[in-house]
Design a protein around this nucleic acid. Structure first.
Lengths: 304, 304
DNA sequence: GCGTTGATATTCATATTTGAATTGCCATAT
DNA sequence: ATATGGCAATTCAAATATGAATATCAACGC
């Protein structure tokens, strides 16, 4: 009779390519995996991996077994979701997956009241440019820029996050304030890589094409923001982030360069968990309360 | 992280209703299961069973988990089939499932040459009135009375097994030999239960209705055969079994009372296994060689 | 009533499994 | 050529899990 735990180990080896890597992932030692693999192979009477200096190389049988083991893992994840969903206590942890642009700063700042209200809950913010798989329990709640396509997920569109052109006061003092878009040709420009604009609603390239060339580029919104703050030039900056930066000046009559919707996503079963539900509702409320700030309309409100 | 082995144990408990029963099935001790269950519940932070004096009673969560665990087990079975299919060595064991009527005697007698030819293979004959599930690896090969309906099975119709009316010489000496079917009214009759005639090709009740009443009834073909051999009366007896019983006399000009087809069945993947393939082919050849004996035509051949 | 059966829990000596440290191997970079 | 780093295998002491024996309890049959 096969040892199911060995199959779990097998899958980790198959997916990480070496005993050492799999051992790190599973929090066991490499010798343990080596022995369990040997035992499994002994048990089934066939080789699953060829051991090479570079790691493990799967045999044909291993390749076929891998699919079934993966399938088993899906069921384990389903069980984990069930278990979490049945947990009615307000303690444990909640993992939130979101992109750097809001996770690293805005989200963390907002969580103060939640942490105070639920001292038993550990909040885990996973800043993650890849998309965490909620079905695989890589996160409990995700903030996404798009409606998720997977089944069994509950998703709610919350705020629209606008980006405007900003520059630092120091830059503008040195180079002058551009009056209209055509003046951009005379200025330094800070540009994001195309890859991080996949989910924007306005096509930013049209606007960006006005810029002569880039002084600074990055695929990190945080790096771009820092560049703007440091006076490297004019760049798109999230309105909600700019709210508390008195040193930044918004240009061109609050022109919206591009915008993205923010989706709040969780798993149907996970939402039965009291603590996840609490966080989901908290984030939903928090986002909706600040929808004006995300839209960048706080300037207007302050001016009136 | 969940221990997959615990899930295997959990499933066994769920399906057997008690720690003790599951422990017997899994070949571990009952205290071990008790502790592993406690550990699993501790791990997920919820109760899966209520322990009662009568055994285990599942909670709602346990009930839901059970489905996923079962699903995992299906994958494990698939892996086992894969492994067996990849085993090209002629050693190991082959389990044959078949009904008592042929398994207990005929099949065992036929296996002599096979055992001699393949000394490395352990032959395991599972006499089984229930239908073993080949997909779940309860057997490698089955002899069935009907075409299996499950997918992924390879099935081959082999011989037709005829049953005739037989009586022992001692009975006939005492009671006389009936000339025609109508004489049956004067004789003792040995009848099978209807339940074991499910898969016959001729409806035997028409023939049996000629009999006055039963002297002996059973749902075991072996018991019925023994009754005929012991001279209790006239009864249906498998022709192939009667072949080596000189004390039995066939009645009514070799009338066929009823007949069943014998299907040789295996799992598609299992047929890739050398040893199972060997047994499959061996049984197929053996059956076809003896098709005349199964049909009950050896008397005629002997007479010519 | 009273013993029997079959269930889970507990105890303790034992067998198994594990991890830290180490070795040895090969490829790559210096 | 010689280090370096990543890999699997080996060794051995320590932690861990296991099973046999036992205790305890409830239901059932006589």
């Amino acid at each position: 009779m096969l040892d199911w735990e060995d199959l779990k180990y097998f899958l980790a080896m198959a997916e990480h390519g070496s005993l050492s890597a799999a051992a790190r992932k599973l929090n066991v030692s490499q010798p343990t995996l080596s022995r369990r693999l040997t035992a499994l192979e002994e048990n089934i009477g066939a080789e699953l991996f060829a051991r090479t200096r570079a790691g493990l190389e799967m045999t044909l049988l291993g390749e076929q077994m891998r699919h079934h083991a993966r399938h088993m893992q899906d069921d384990v994840h389903a069980i984990e979701r069930l278990v979490t969903g049945h947990d009615s206590s307000l303690s444990g942890s909640v993992m939130i997956s979101c992109i750097e642009a809001i996770g690293a700063i805005w989200l963390v700042e907002q969580l103060g009241p939640f942490i105070e209200q639920y001292p038993g809950i550990t909040v885990d913010v996973k800043v993650d440019n890849a998309v965490s798989d909620l079905l695989r329990r890589e996160a409990d709640i995700a903030l996404r820029m798009f409606r998720p396509v997977q089944n069994d997920l509950v998703a709610r569109r919350t705020v629209t996050m606008n980006y405007g052109y900003y520059a630092s006061r120091s830059y503008l003092e040195a180079r002058g304030v551009p009056d209209a878009l055509k003046d951009l040709k005379e200025h330094n420009f800070i540009l994001p890589h195309d890859e991080i604009l996949t989910h924007t609603k306005t096509d930013p390239r049209k606007v960006y094409s006005l810029a002569r060339s880039a002084t600074f580029r990055s695929n990190s919104m945080m790096a771009l923001a820092t560049a703007v703050e440091s006076g490297f030039g004019i760049g798109a900056y999230s309105c909600v982030m700019a709210k508390d930066k008195p040193d930044l000046v918004r240009l061109f009559d609050d022109l919206v360069v591009f915008s993205t919707d923010i989706w709040l996503v969780s798993h149907a079963e996970l939402r039965r968990s009291a603590r996840i539900r609490a966080m989901y509702d908290f984030l939903g409320d928090m986002l909706m309360e600040q929808s004006e700030a995300f839209a960048g309309r706080f300037h207007a409100a302050a001016a009136e």
